[in-house]
Nucleic acid binder design. Structure first.
Length: 861
RNA sequence: GCCUGGGUGGCGGAACUGGUAGACGCAAGGGACUUAAAAUCCCUCGGUCCUUGAGGCUGUGCGGGUUCGAUUCCCGCCCCAGGCACCA
């Protein structure tokens, strides 16, 4: 009786059965060890892409594996549902963002279910629902109360296309991270989250997250950017006030010959006011204001400045230092002012050369002597101090502390630290986001909406035109309110929050099932589930999302909502999915269907096979998951993603590779169904009777495979090698002579192997394995079956191969019993025919024996 | 410029703390089955040399070093990818 492997039939059948039996629904069970597995939730763009398939397959394998290992597994899914694309759809197609979002969610949910992912859909959340964002608004009120949310007027990064503010983190090389327009600047009153209040803890814990990839932690540390240095005071030459600077190079203070102030700094206008230079200074400031971020951060941006006709005094030497406004000094780092040491800082050097300012060498390199007249660039390495008063002759690194202490004693400086990390600006002039629950009252200022009035619900009937400014501000009725403090007419805040706020705490919401509306954040449940044991997602979130989520966790801990310091115990950042591109000189990038025999079907020109790039619509190198499922089934899509490369690496898509994965599943299906009639009523071998020959070898291989697959999944999530081990096991089943129907011993060994194959593959390809399991007469759902265990004795080899080397080169191999005596092995090695030939007539120098591995015979002459 | 990763067959990738380089899969070639094709099954498959063997040499980006032995450790360099970037 032959059964054909028909993926779509069996996949839909099992998906339906899992849903009916609510196999993946989970509740807190204090008697079971919990495991919280989370994949980064998607933005509901409308369709899942291969990147999702890969991410969620990796997660699903771990979830299913942990379930089989007996853990109480929380594996939820939801939607990061606020954001710009919904609003753009509204502007372009007149569809309401809510309708658009929910339609997309429905479709993507269908696709995820069709992949067979084992989610507890009972915990599904969409961040655009008031039941979700009311918590966010509540946290916001608490943050205002604690001073962790504050309003401040500042220049902000402004994307002219999205017409909204962007956080520093959302500006990439001067371009908007979303639409790649050039980012400009704008002066606005904005809400900020005081992430800097947690900067030390965020940095500290970077060294206490052993389950995170090193590079992610390095990126976060760099982003936080802690530098140790000094704040130094430079008195004005006219005795009126002083200028403070931050420096990490106080060792070069004796070489500071001029002072630089950021062009945007208010001090620039103040110092030049009423002076002859005032006009020139204003022109300079105007000019810089017009320059966009991209230009200012460009490599070729020329350093420029203007003299403010004022001097300050070097606190160490008393030297008179001219003060300049400069275009390359950052206004929002340190104090916005820097002491310039042209001999030992390349930027200052260029500036000094351009404006003919004095140079003094204060560090001499160990191997040569610097001369200010011949220097072509600044010397920034280590050396010995010169021209530095009492510090002459000291190594500059040692002088860092000594000079800091000296200036501190003079009352001119103090040791301090600076961070690159800024507070997080979260106001967005958009509609489709969480309303900020604050009231603006003329008399009382900004007043919080009372907790009892939450949530501030986003009104539905808002007109979206795509024109500038906040849509909520133009919506009649929304903003009009009365001040909760004085009762007078007032206005609600009409900006909404950055969508990164929703994703900063969604993992907490998952800890309570959806029907637990009140209280949606239950401390007992949070204590049971948090932290997330394994978080999986794209490397592109290495800084932004992961840093914000860490900040929120610490803050919510301090609010008493949570009991953990860090949200994610282990982090896996999976690589991108890439595919080759094809490009016609005339028609640009082409879909594979538009290419025939290497030529463009439109114009017949030869098509260039481009390099492999991240799949994207514009490069036309995408693969549609729905197509894959239709053509091969979800199991093939899953196993290909797992087999093609280890999860943290980029995956190069290969259509032939997909065929190969399908072939492996068919091959597995065939060998099991071929044996079905013979082994259905035979119990799996469980030891007892002694085995010999092929059967003994097969059983050994089976137990070795269980050991290897378990280790590969458990220790490093290397599913590719786990799969190849199972492939080997399946391959070893093929050449086995078919036992007679009454050879129950042989059949029971085969059944043991077959059951091992099925259970080892169960987390990876859940549908085909469920089907095969039930065909074997097993009635329980495979999802509830225990992960197979192995017997070390059975897995151990009785005969091992010893490599024999001569002078480190492999010359022969011998097979010996695994427990063979070392002396005997060495004697056998010397007696080996090929070895004898190699060492004939040579002097034996020494002999190295590595037990169980090799013998190396070293000969001379 | 600084900080991370990473360079292994025609390709994706194995080789876990220094000990058989190339597991597994793809592609390619050969064979079996078939009227034929597809599917399936079996075999070969880093390079090179010859005397075709249970052969020799060579081979993990390049150049050195440590070691009985290096894809693995150390030093110097080249290339690729990612992050940060006038952060004083």
């Amino acid at each position: 009786m032959e059964r054909k492997y028909n993926p779509s039939e069996i996949e839909e059948k099992w998906q339906k059965r899992w849903e009916e039996k609510q196999v993946f629904r989970v509740t807190e069970d204090p008697n079971k060890k919990k495991y919280y597995l989370l994949e980064m939730f998607p933005y509901p763009s409308g369709r899942i892409h291969i990147g999702h398939v890969r991410n969620y397959t990796i997660g699903d394998v771990v979830a299913r594996y942990k379930r089989m290992k007996g853990f109480n597994v929380l594996h939820p899914m939801g939607w990061d549902a606020f954001g710009m694309p919904a609003e753009n759809a509204a502007i372009e197609h007149g569809i309401h963002p809510s309708t658009w979002t929910h339609e997309n969610i429905d479709n993507m949910k269908r696709q995820l279910k069709r992949m067979g992912f084992s989610y507890d859909w009972d915990r599904e959340i969409a961040t655009c629902e008031p039941e979700y964002y009311r918590w966010e608004q509540l946290f916001f009120l608490w943050m205002v109360e604690k001073g962790l949310a504050y309003k401040k007027s500042s220049t902000v990064n402004w994307c002219p296309k999205c017409e909204t503010v962007l956080a520093n983190e959302q500006v990439e090389a001067g371009l908007c991270w979303r639409c790649e327009s050039e980012v400009g600047e704008k002066y606005l009153s904005q809400w900020f989250f005081k992430i800097t209040a947690y900067v030390e803890e965020l940095l500290d814990y970077c060294d206490r997250l052993p389950g995170w990839p090193e590079r992610v932690l390095t990126m976060q540390k760099n982003w936080i950017g802690k530098s140790y240095g000094c704040e130094l005071s430079f008195p004005m030459a006219d005795g009126k006030g002083e200028i403070k600077v931050f420096t990490t190079r106080q060792d070069t203070i004796y070489g500071a010959t001029f002072m630089l102030i950021a062009a945007e700094h208010p001090l620039v206008l103040e110092l030049s006011r009423g002076k002859e230079c005032e006009g020139t200074v204003r022109d300079f400031m105007e000019k810089i204001k017009k320059q966009d971020k991209k230009m200012r951060t460009s490599e070729y941006y020329e350093k420029e400045g203007v003299f403010l006709d004022t001097y300050c005094l070097n606190p160490a030497t008393g030297r008179k230092m001219p003060i300049y406004a400069a275009n390359f000094v950052l206004a929002d780092y340190g104090t916005g002012c820097v002491m310039a040491v042209p001999t030992h800082d390349q930027r200052d050097f260029e500036f000094a050369k351009k404006y003919d300012l004095p140079l003094i060498v204060v560090i001499q390199p160990p191997d040569r002597t610097l001369n200010v007249r011949t220097m072509a660039e600044a010397y920034t390495e280590e050396g010995v101090l010169v021209n530095s008063g009492p510090f002459d002759g000291m190594e500059n690194l040692k002088a860092l502390d000594a000079i800091a202490d000296h200036l501190e004693k003079l009352g001119r400086g103090k040791k301090t630290v600076q961070y690159r990390l800024r507070d997080w600006g979260i106001s967005r002039q958009r509609y489709w986001g969480t309303p900020i629950p604050m009231v603006l009252c003329e008399a009382c200022g900004t007043v919080p909406v009372p907790e009892s009035d939450l949530p501030v619900v986003l009104p539905r009937e808002v007109e979206l035109t795509g024109e500038g400014g906040s849509p909520l501000a133009r919506f009649p009725g929304f903003a009009e309110t009365i001040c909760p403090r004085c009762g007078q007419p007032a206005r609600l805040e009409t900006d909404t929050m950055d969508t990164f706020v929703e994703s900063s705490w969604y993992f907490d919401r998952f800890c309570s099932a959806r029907h637990d509306v009140s209280p949606g954040l239950d401390r007992a449940k949070l204590d049971y589930w948090m932290p997330v044991d394994q978080y999986i997602g794209g490397i592109e979130h290495a800084i932004l999302h992961l840093l914000y989520a860490r900040f929120y966790t610490k803050m919510l801990r301090d609010f008493g909502v949570l009991g953990v310091d860090e949200p994610f115990k282990n982090l896996l950042t999976q690589g991108m999915v890439c595919k080759e591109t094809m490009r016609c000189p005339e028609h640009g990038y082409l879909f594979p269907d538009d290419v025939q025999d290497g030529k463009c079907t439109q114009c017949g020109r030869a098509v260039a096979i481009g390099k492999t790039e991240k799949m994207s619509k514009s490069l036309k190198n995408v693969v549609d998951p729905d197509y894959l499922i239709r053509a091969y089934g979800a199991d093939t899509a899953r196993i290909f993603c797992l087999f093609a490369s280890p999860p943290e690496k980029d995956l190069e898509w290969s259509d032939q590779g997909v065929d190969g994965s399908f072939r492996f599943l068919s091959r597995t299906w065939r060998i099991v169904t071929d044996y079905l009639d013979l082994i259905r009523d035979v119990p799996p071998f469980a030891g007892g009777e002694p085995l010999e020959g092929d059967l003994k070898a097969l059983r050994r291989k089976t137990h070795q495979t269980i050991r290897k697959v378990t280790a590969d999944i458990e220790e490093r999530f290397h599913f590719n090698t786990a799969i190849s081990a199972v492939m080997e096991l399946v391959n070893s089943l093929y050449p086995l002579p078919r036992p007679a129907a009454d050879d129950r011993l042989a059949l029971s060994v085969i059944r043991e192997t077959v059951e091992a194959v099925i259970r080892l593959l169960a987390p990876l390809v859940p549908h085909i394995t469920e089907e095969l399991w039930s065909l074997l007469g097993r009635s329980e759902t495979l999802a509830d079956v225990a992960w197979p265990s192995f017997d070390t004795t059975v897995a151990s080899e009785e005969e091992i191969t010893i490599v024999i080397q001569v002078n480190g080169k492999v010359r022969s191999r011998i097979n010996v019993p695994a427990d063979e005596d070392g002396e005997k092995i060495q004697a056998l090695a010397l007696a080996d025919e090929k070895i004898a030939r190699q060492i004939a007539g040579k002097r034996l120098v020494k002999q190295i024996y590595v037990p169980g591995k090799l013998v190396n015979i070293v000969v001379g002459g």
